[in-house]
Simulated scan of single mutants.
Amino acid sequence: MPVTVGHSRTPGRRYAAATIDTDFDAHERSRWAGRAEAYARSFGRLCAYPAETLLDAAAVRAGRRLIDVGTGPGTVAAAAPARGAEVAAVDAALLASARVD
């Protein structure tokens, strides 16, 4: 059964609602369960290499707000605050979420 979600932390600001298929979500969670550490040691290291280049391309700097959806081990989200950005990050597949202000 699909679930509709939407959220805004800023009064007066509107965000489009997203629909999540809970069957797909459950499948993804079951496939990733217990694999976060192995991912961080392998593919996560490979993906960490271009993090600074990605932040440069997105013009991440002081005063910018960044959302990292599908953050994995959080490499890009962890690097952004050093540039003065406000970051929210989530990765449901790895059951990890973080918020760094």
Rank of each mutant, 00 (worst) to 15 (best):
R31A: 15
A77S: 09
A82W: 01
R64F: 13
E86I: 10
A57I: 09
R99S: 13
R14E: 14
R9D: 11
A77F: 04
H27E: 13
V60S: 04
D68W: 00
P81H: 08
L54G: 03
P50L: 14
A58P: 11
A17K: 00
P50Y: 08
G72A: 08
Y15R: 00
E52W: 02
T71M: 08
D21L: 08
T75I: 10
V87P: 02
D56N: 07
D21S: 11
V60I: 14
A80L: 09
T75M: 04
V90A: 10
E52V: 12
G63D: 12
T10I: 10
V69K: 00
A82N: 06
L94N: 04
E37P: 03
R14G: 14
S30M: 11
A78K: 00
A98Q: 04
L66C: 09
G44W: 07
S42A: 15
V90R: 00
R99I: 12
V60L: 07
W32P: 03
T22I: 08
A85P: 01
F24Y: 07
A93T: 05
P50I: 14
D101E: 06
A26H: 10
S42Q: 12
G74F: 01
A51W: 02
T22N: 04
V76S: 02
R83V: 14
I67K: 01
R29P: 13
F24V: 14
S97R: 01
D23T: 12
E28W: 07
R31K: 11
A80T: 09
C47Y: 06
A40H: 09
R14D: 12
R35Q: 14
D21K: 02
A85K: 00
V5G: 01
A40P: 11
G63S: 12
G72C: 08
R29W: 09
R83C: 14
A57C: 12
T10D: 05
A92I: 05
R13L: 11
A82F: 06
A17L: 08
G12L: 05
P2F: 00
G44M: 04
W32A: 05
L55P: 04
I20N: 04
C47P: 03
A33Y: 06
P81W: 06
S30K: 03
R99K: 02
T19W: 02
P2V: 03
A85N: 04
D23H: 06
V90E: 06
A88V: 11
A16Y: 02
W32Q: 12
W32V: 09
G72H: 01
D25E: 15
A18I: 06
R83D: 13
R13E: 12
L95I: 01
V69A: 13
A16H: 05
A89F: 02
